[in-house]
Amino acid sequence: MLSDSSKSSLLGSFRKHFHSLMGKCSKLWSKQNQSAQIAEYIYVQCGVYLKVPNKTRWNSTFYELKQLHELLSTVPLKMNAIMDQCSLYRITTAETVVVQEYTEIMGPLAQSLDTLQQENGMFMGYLLPMLYNLDHKLDELENKPVRYTYCFQLLRGVHEALRKQFAAFWEDKRLLLAACLHPRFKLEWLESRQATTHTNKHTMEALLKAEIKMGALNEDRDQSSDKDQEGNDLENDFFNIERQWTLLMRNC
């Protein structure tokens, strides 16, 4: 979005301050990495070393800027002293506002990525509930009573891009069933939400009932051993799955 925008566009003011901020941050990170004295000075002033982004992971840039926002909010004078010590221009008031708005807007996206990129305990059923709730959180940010000074167009652009990128996923029956059959989500991830985004609880109930009638979810049920069945019963009891199946079958 930034590369396609111009100075006169709605993103122009954000682009100007964000590029200026990132230029200062890049020099500051380099100073910390290249000078043990500067690194020690930063640690003495702030009690922490500055986080440095990893170019292969977008999240690392977000968390560095989040740390910067926290330092600018809590110890602004010490941050000024650090910039002076590094012979760099101080971070301006406008840049401080930009980093605050940026981290608030990108926070839900960063959290979603962190969750989906877990190496353990991650399943296909997480994807749609994550996208659904991410969309809802971005909706809330767009409808805040006080609009963002610099980052509103960034928020709107990210929101539209996510909807466009993942629109086809909501037509994938496998993803829908995976989400509704995951014991953590079931149908509750659609609870108390209006059907204004992609789907609703009633639609998911109908889909599950149709699949049950077709027998698609019972393919190997009768072939399981007694030992396997005993293990499944224990797991179903833990996640309260059996009660959900009973209710669904009763309503079919």
Rank of each mutant, 00 (worst) to 15 (best):
D4A: 12
L10F: 02
L10V: 07
L11V: 09
G12R: 12
F14I: 08
H17F: 12
F18V: 08
H19T: 11
S20Q: 10
L21Y: 02
S26R: 13
S26T: 13
L28D: 01
W29F: 15
K31S: 10
Q34M: 11
S35F: 04
S35I: 06
A36D: 07
I38D: 04
Y41G: 02
Q45T: 03
Q45N: 09
V48E: 13
V48A: 07
N54K: 07
T56C: 07
R57G: 05
R57F: 08
F62I: 04
Y63T: 00
Y63L: 02
E64C: 08
L65S: 04
L65A: 04
Q67C: 02
Q67T: 01
L68T: 00
L68I: 09
T74N: 09
P76I: 06
L77V: 06
L77S: 11
L77Y: 07
A81G: 03
I82M: 11
D84C: 06
C86M: 11
Y89F: 05
V97R: 07
Y102H: 01
E104W: 00
M106Q: 03
P108V: 05
L109S: 08
A110N: 13
L113I: 14
L113V: 14
L116H: 05
L116S: 05
E119S: 13
N120V: 12
N120P: 00
G121R: 07
M122Q: 11
F123W: 06
G125C: 08
Y126D: 10
Y126F: 14
Y126G: 03
M130D: 04
M130C: 15
L131Q: 05
D135C: 10
D135L: 01
K137A: 10
L138W: 00
N143C: 08
K144M: 13
Y148W: 01
T149P: 01
Y150L: 06
F152W: 03
L155Q: 02
L155N: 02
G157L: 09
H159L: 00
H159E: 01
A161D: 14
F166M: 04
F166Q: 05
A167M: 10
A167K: 12
F169T: 10
W170G: 05
W170T: 03
E171Y: 08
D172L: 06
K173C: 07
K173G: 00
K173W: 00
R174K: 09
A178W: 02
C180M: 10
H182W: 02
F185H: 10
E188M: 13
E191T: 10
H198F: 15
H198E: 07
N200S: 14
N200M: 08
K201A: 10
K201Y: 01
A206S: 15
L208M: 14
A210L: 12
A210I: 04
E211A: 09
K213T: 10
K213H: 07
K213S: 14
K213F: 05
K213G: 05
M214P: 01
A216G: 12
E219W: 08
D220F: 13
R221M: 12
R221D: 11
D226P: 07
I241L: 15
R243P: 00
Q244F: 15
M249G: 00
R250H: 15
N251T: 15
